[in-house]
Every structure is written in structure tokens, then in C-alpha cells.
Amino acid sequence: MLGKILKRLGTVVPSLIGVVIVTFLLTRVMPGDPAAYFAGPAATPEAIEEIRRSLGLDRPLLEQFLAYVVDLAQGDLGTSLTTGLPVMHEITTRLPASAELTLLGLIVSMAIALPLGVLAAVRQGSWIDHLSRVIATAGVSLPVFFTGLLLVYVFYFILGWAPAPMGRLDFFFSDPERVTGFFLIDSLLMGDLELFRAAFSQIWLPALTLGIFSLAPITRMTRASMLAVLASDFVRTARANGLPPGKVVITYAFRNALLPIITTLGMVFSFLLGANVLVEKVFAWPGIGSYAVEALIASDFAPVQGFVLAMAILYVLLNLLIDILYGVIDPRVRIEA
């Protein structure tokens, strides 16, 4: 198994090289001149030229690329022009924030969507099927900033169950010791339940917002996949042999229906991770999406490059994880790998 994973990781190398080249080139063809932006609106052309030289932007493209690759090999993603902080540092603090939020959102979503999708398929055409359709459609058709604001209004402003949407932790608390970068996990590792509760009270609203938004694809895929499997011959055999409905639905049908569901989960996760800028804005979440968008608006190369690269690596790892899960679920995949 380990050998197969390593072999599979080997196939990732060419795509990563491609990602490095493409991100570099893309940021160079982006509209906007970072030197002009950095110099400010009042700068003279000479000053802009001076800055361009100091940033190395006047040198040939190949030279810039080589310098980029050498830095990259040393773990240096450059420095943000707007914040003045190293990009590596920003990404390593912001990526876990985004990942923690997205993962929790996905867990919330799965907890609702999987049972709902299974029930909708088992009782096709019943009220629960219609309910699942309504919930999924409503969740995906309401924009996240709207759902987010609505939740903040209800749970913070009216009910007061949630703290002010002000980032990952209240001012009174200091960040937990960094192990995984996930505050919920790190606080538990420290054994600080107070801190865990504080972190959780901040995260549950944005996570719920994301969860509601991603209900639709997961519910629909679960339902469709379950319907196909429930109509298959081996489910009929299981029923004809007198196996109880629970066993037929869970052990026989659901496990077989999992493959397309896992693919969808992977897609939803990677999509949400980069695209939940709006949720991050509403809840003042120090995530990676808002960081990248701000850098992009400022024509700030280094963070954008770093963001794309980080996302690409994450995506590759995610796909690897999905492949491994496939192998665990389906013995036929194991043989082909």
C-alpha cells in the first residue's frame, strides 16, 4: 500500500512543476504594474523605475523565474508588498484558518446531507425527498454573504448565542500553541477547554453558513448515486435473501454509492477553500481567500503566486487522499492502481 502511495506521489511531480511555471507566467501577464502601485499615485516615473529595479522586475523573464525557483527551493515565497510580511508566514497562518473553517463546514454539511440524500433515495417521491430538494435548492440559491449576515443577525444580534463575528478568537484569548494550526485541535491538545469553547463559539456560525451552501451538491449526489445502486441486481439479491432494510441500505447500497460521493466531497472542499472569500469577509475570518483577493487587487505578485501554489499542492494531496479512499472502498480500484 505504501509503495503504491509513493508511486502515486511520483506522478504528482510533473504537475507541480507545471503549476510553478504557470503561476509564475500568469502573475506576469496580469494587468496592473506592481511598481506603479507600490510607488503610490504621486510618484514620479523615475521613482517607479527605481522601485521596479529594486524589485528585480526590469530583468529578463527567465532570470526572474530562476530567482523565483531558487527562492522557492529555500521555502521563500517572497514578501508581500502591501503588508511587508513574508508570504510563507502569511500562508502558513492563514491556510489552517481557512482549512479549519472549510473542513468544519463540510462536516456540518455531510452530517445533514448524507442522511438526507440516503433517505430521499430510499423513499423516492415521498415528503422527505421533496424536503431534501427544497433544502438543497434553498441552500445553494441563497448567497453565502446573505445566509451569513442572516445567521449573524439571528444568533448574535437577536439571540446573543454567538459572539461578535470578529475572527478566530475573542481579544481576551491568545492563540493556542501552534501544532496543527487548527485552533479547535490545538486548544484540545493544550487541554484548555475554555480556549476550545471560545474558538468553537467563533467558528460555528461561519461553518454553518458554508455547510448550508454546500448541502446541495452533496445531497443531490448522494441521492442520485444511491438511486442507481438501489436499482442494481445485487441489492435485489440481498433483499431476496432476506437481509433487513438497514443492512441492505447501509452495508450493501451506501458503501457502493460512496465513490461518486467522495469525488463530490473532494470537489466541494477544494472549491470552498479558495472561494469562501465572502464568508471570510462577513465573519472577519483571517483566511487565505481574502488574503489572495486583496493581493490580487493590489497587483501584489508574491502572495498570489504563493496562494495558487499552495492551493495546487493542497489539491494534489486531496486527490491523492481520494484515490487512497477509493482503494479502501473498492477492491477493483486497488488492483488497477
Binding site: 442494481s232 441486481d233 445485487f234 435485489r236 439479491t237 440481498a238 450493501y252 473498492d330 477492491p331
Partner: peptide, 11 residues
Amino acid sequence: FQNPRAALNPI
């Protein structure tokens, strides 16, 4: 059943 391979749970 007909088509015995499909009649068995593949995984």
C-alpha cells in the same frame, strides 16, 4: 438470478 456477477455485491 440472471447475470450472476451483477447479482453479487462487488465490494
